[in-house]
Design a protein around this nucleic acid. Structure first.
Lengths: 148, 148
DNA sequence: CTCTTTGCAAATCTTTTGCAACTTG
DNA sequence: CAAGTTGCAAAAGATTTGCAAAGAG
């Protein structure tokens, strides 16, 4: 009972195991939701999970996302409206479309991030450990739209 | 009475004029405070200004910083605790010391930011317009401290 | 004198806390 | 069964809104 039948665990189970958390139906649902909808807010996860799980409490969603963040499996990104949770823990930039509000990852920039770290060390004697990079602009879809 | 005696206006006056806002004592005090203490929160500005201006309302500080942000003279940066206001509108990275919490600017990285924009355009067809870059780590002072 | 701005009170929204009842391992 | 979790109610913070009185140009 340590390996799943196919030999591979579903990602939500694997994530909860890595966080050393008990597998409850609420957690499985919340984690499945955040894994399929990256950069969600607590409120959005709550609304989504509630459709298949009407009894879940908002507080529970807060608790689940908070503990996963504490244990390093998610990253909380404060935005104007609310905190959004990032599943991608590798160095990357978030591209935020100011028109449709969609957020996507730019993962092809690790060398550029390394350069940024280098600058901080060299020019400011600052020792960077992690970063948050947001690019605001127009996604490819929205660029095509009329009044863009 | 249009030019100050020396021919140069104090920075807080110049900023309010550029925003096309009336010069009130509250505004002058709030702007002077944010200009001397970059990356402050509304609460911190309120506390600081209140010492020389005990009657000012928190709401007023919110109003002033909000309208300056709307008119493009400040930039609001949401953090976990609260929004911090950035006076530096040029491309730069914020270096946030995770030990002493101080925030300083890294302004020597505009070429690196240009590279980042380039990546977004080329690799993701995303058209960047502005960015927010935070580097978390240890400032030069805190690196020297014991348990660092 | 007119339009803007301030200050106060109350409301809103996100997030946190306390605690009893209920599951998971 | 013991420790970990959930759900509910209430609290805590940050920020916004409505409005009348005061102030700037």
């Amino acid at each position: 009972m340590c390996a799943s039948p196919s030999g591979t665990e579903p990602p939500e189970i694997s994530l909860l195991r890595r966080a050393q958390l008990r597998l409850t139906p609420q957690r499985l649902a919340v984690v499945r939701e955040i894994l399929t909808h990256n950069h969600s807010t607590v409120g959005a996860v709550y609304e989504a999970v509630r459709q298949q799980f009407p009894a879940i409490a908002l507080t529970t969603v807060y608790a689940i996302l908070s503990i996963l963040t504490e244990r390093g499996l998610l990253r909380g990104l404060p935005f104007e409206d609310a905190v959004r949770y990032d599943v991608n823990l590798n160095p990357h930039a978030n591209m935020i479309c100011t028109r449709c509000r969609r957020i996507t990852d730019l993962s092809t920039c690790s060398e550029v991030i390394a350069l940024l770290y280098e600058h901080a060390r060299t020019d400011a004697a600052f020792l960077p450990e992690r970063e948050r990079i947001d690019l605001f602009g127009l996604c490819s879809e929205c660029q095509k739209l009329p009044s863009a």
